[in-house]
Nucleic acid binder design. Structure first.
Lengths: 218, 218
DNA sequence: GGGTAAACGGAGACGGCTCTCCGAATCATA
DNA sequence: TATGATTCGGAGAGCCGTCTCCGTTTACCC
């Protein structure tokens, strides 16, 4: 992203290797895995890790930036679908797959949010997603009571399946099918028990600073 | 559980305090939060923590045992419902709420699975859950192609909403509604794209030892 | 109350992780 | 191939969390 690509080939190569191994390592052992281990896996000295990434947060940040770039690549296909409903399908499927395929992402996102709570990822898509939802609802295909927040939460939920490891990925589409069927406007659709939220309210809530009090569900 | 309740009141009190604070601390800062911090929060010396729980894993294990005990308390209501479909509703709702309300649970479960991969939590419920599903399907209320594994994964997904903090809990039922609608047998239900799994296969897969290779989704 | 066994608290040894530093190795350029 | 600049590697200093040890305190029982 903003990183200054070095003119030396070995430096570029190591940078790539470190990023690639970091994805693997973080997926396996979590986002706080020892960076010396990263050095070993990448076949590189510890010093090299810290020259490329001054600290763990810088590495996390770069993984995040790369992920966001991938996300932007998905936008045209999703938003350009024939029908609104097809867009919604693609939205849930592609974004869910994107998260599930990178199990380190949820942790990376959370860390970035901690480091910079004012940051609002993907805010530029908000009007587009809202338009997509309205279109699908106008077609009578998407249930009338879902919001953009609901969809992004469903994507997170689908993404959480990444925890089961790569072998689960083939089965992931079963849950996707159930969720998409639940999103369809059909006779007998159950009304939502509580009203939805605006994005702002949701963002402020989920990134509230300090210890989160946890009242009981019921 | 197997722990020998001390005859001294201060010991029992500290044990309770430590468990209660551990729930809070692990929910906020993750399952690897410093135990000295736990001691401070519980208003207790570091030595006391380690007398009650020889190491972090013992603490995790006890949180796990307590959670499983709660789970057993839920069983009669869920399995004793009027109809099979109502059982399925209660199953997804109550278990999802149980996980969402204890955000440290997913991490605790994963850790316990790492420590003792042969351990099969809730295996005694398997035939009961299968019976419940067959009943609901025989009623024509539950889609015919869902399995017990699907349901338990849906519960995990719902439970992952605990990450948003206690303030999200009121909204949690929106996703529950969507999922339950997706589980209903209705005209126009989308067929599953891939066959389901047996519990054994799923368990073996998700607790495969060693680094998990992560092939791409598509 | 007095005695005894059990539990408490916290200082500090220990181990592992982070990050720095600098001599050695590698690359771009001519 | 020679030169200079850049990057590499890994030993080790420093820090932070874990866990032990033991003198002090507390609870229980008579």
């Amino acid at each position: 992203m903003t990183s200054s690509a070095s003119s030396r080939r070995d430096a570029r190569r190591n940078h790539e290797r470190l990023l690639a191994e970091a994805r693997r390592l973080f997926a396996e052992r979590g986002i706080d895995a020892p960076l010396d281990e990263l050095a070993t896996r990448a076949g590189v000295g510890a010093g090299t890790v810290y020259r490329h990434f001054p600290n763990r947060d810088a590495l996390v940040r770069e993984l995040y930036d790369n992920a966001v770039a991938e996300l932007h690549d998905l936008a045209p296909e999703i938003l350009g679908a024939e029908t609104g409903w097809r867009s919604v399908e693609l939205y849930v499927e592609r974004l869910g797959a994107w998260v599930a395929d990178s199990p380190f992402l949820p942790a990376v996102m959370r860390r970035v949010a901690e480091l910079d709570p004012s940051h609002r990822p993907g805010i530029e898509f908000e009007p587009l997603v809202n338009g997509m939802i309205e279109r699908a609802q106008a077609e009578g295909a998407l249930r009338a009571d879902v919001t953009a927040v609901d969809l992004s939460i469903l994507v997170d939920m689908l993404g959480s399946l990444g925890q089961y490891g790569g072998e689960y990925l083939p089965f992931w589409r079963r849950q996707l099918t159930i969720i998409l069927d639940g999103l369809r406007a059909r006779p007998g659709t159950t009304p939502m028990p509580v009203p939805g939220q605006a994005f702002d309210a949701f963002h402020d809530m989920s990134h509230a600073k300090g210890p989160k009090p946890r009242p009981s569900v019921e």
